[in-house]
């Protein structure tokens, strides 16, 4: 188990431009997410599941890896991650509206089932934890290619690790255990980012595990474990970048646990008042990752309040434009339901 103090300060090496870019992605994600909640309330979309509160660890994960090149196997809460990897706000909205041009699934999957071959974001299902073995399999493929000389070790144009994300409740699944075990046995270039928001819908973390941290289980798999403040961009980046360096150096897998919180209901179908107090939610809202990162950037003299305001206005405009274009996009034809059952060509 690594503590924050032991990790080199990778975050200190991030440039001003990169820090601001990361902040922008967090704000765009938040504004887009809030718009989706509103669209759901207006009856315009059938479902929404939110990344609100998780933005810091997700943007850090995107920037820690080789963005758009390394394999990513996300889960439904990874809106900020998907955006920071290069998926556009409109991609998300096309999915939320189930449009024919939804790039994730052509309107087949529920919203937030991110996928892009160009960005190496691999399609996932709604069944929690099923993507973890896939990510370990992709990491296995990387190791295989390196060992067989099919890929040069330092070739940064090729994927050099697989990152996957999951909620803490879903780590109770057998899928997670079996995949973590492979990652340990084969010392795979693999990172499992657990976004521990303390609830799996209504069920609190202490009903999932007798251990204080998910990452306490790392030694059982023979992988590296690390716990960090998932609402702190810089702490998240430090921990995740260290995991990335380990993977690139061939030193094996990391179980990285971000402590965070979901200050909104689980999904648009949930009412969180039945299982947690308003006081608890309000307390976590004061630790909001965007407020925190904004203050950090101001304290460091990198941005002023009017810069933050400008970024916010820009994000709103971007979301407005994406929504306009989405509304104009066509719905799938009914019989599109019949297509793409079997692949006919074997592309590499």
């Amino acid at each position: 188990m690594t503590t924050a103090a032991e990790t080199r300060s990778y975050a200190a090496q991030l440039t001003r431009d990169t820090l601001i870019e990361m902040y922008r992605f967090m704000v765009v994600s938040r504004r887009l997410d809030e718009r989706a909640w509103a669209l759901h309330r207006q009856g315009k979309i059938a479902f929404h599941i939110s990344a609100i509160g998780h933005e810091a660890c997700q943007v850090a994960a995107a920037y820690a890896i080789n963005r758009g090149v390394d394999y990513v196997f996300p889960y439904y809460r990874d809106l900020t991650l998907a955006l920071a990897l290069g998926s556009a706000p409109q991609d998300f909205l096309l999915g939320a509206f189930g449009k024919a041009t939804d790039p994730y699934s052509g309107g087949r999957q529920m919203p937030s089932h991110f996928s892009s071959r160009a960005l190496n974001i691999v399609s996932g299902s709604s069944s929690v934890a099923t993507q973890i073995p896939h990510a370990a399999g992709a990491a296995f493929a990387i190791k295989y290619r390196l060992q067989r000389g099919l890929q040069a070790p330092d070739d940064a144009t090729q994927p050099r690790l697989a990152l996957t994300c999951i909620g803490e409740g879903s780590t109770s699944q057998g899928e997670w255990y079996e995949a973590m075990n492979w990652a340990g046995v084969h010392r795979l270039p693999f990172i499992c980012l657990v976004q521990n928001n303390y609830y799996a819908i209504s069920v609190p973390y202490d009903q999932q595990s007798a251990l204080p941290n998910v990452a306490d289980r790392a030694p059982a798999f023979g992988v590296h474990g690390v716990v960090f403040d998932g609402n702190d961009v810089l702490a998240s980046y430090d921990a995740l970048r260290a995991a990335v360096e380990r993977a690139y150096r061939g030193e094996g897998a990391t179980l990285a646990e971000a402590k965070t919180y979901r200050p909104v209901p689980h999904s648009s179908d949930d009412d969180d008042r039945s299982y947690r107090t308003r006081e608890e939610v309000e307390e976590w809202k004061r630790k909001d990752p965007i407020l925190r990162f904004g203050s950090t950037l101001m304290e460091r003299g990198l941005l002023r309040q009017d810069d933050l305001n400008a970024i916010d206005a820009q994000a709103r405009a971007e979301v407005d434009a994406a929504l306009r274009d989405t509304l104009a996009a066509p719905d799938p034809a009914p019989e599109d339901a019949l297509g793409a059952v079997y692949a006919t060509e074997d592309t590499p």
Binding site: Y71, F73, V122, T130, I132, P133, H134, A135, A136, G137, A138, A139, F140, A141, I142, Y144, P159, A162, G174, E175, E178, A179, N181, W182, V185, P348
Partner: peptide, 22 residues
């Protein structure tokens, strides 16, 4: 493999979608 069928298949799926032929 480890004695664990879901991961034999799950690892195979992941390796297959990124280009191997398990």
């Amino acid at each position: 493999s480890p004695l664990a069928e879901l991961s034999i298949v799950g690892i195979g799926i992941g390796a297959a979608v990124v280009g191997l032929r398990p």
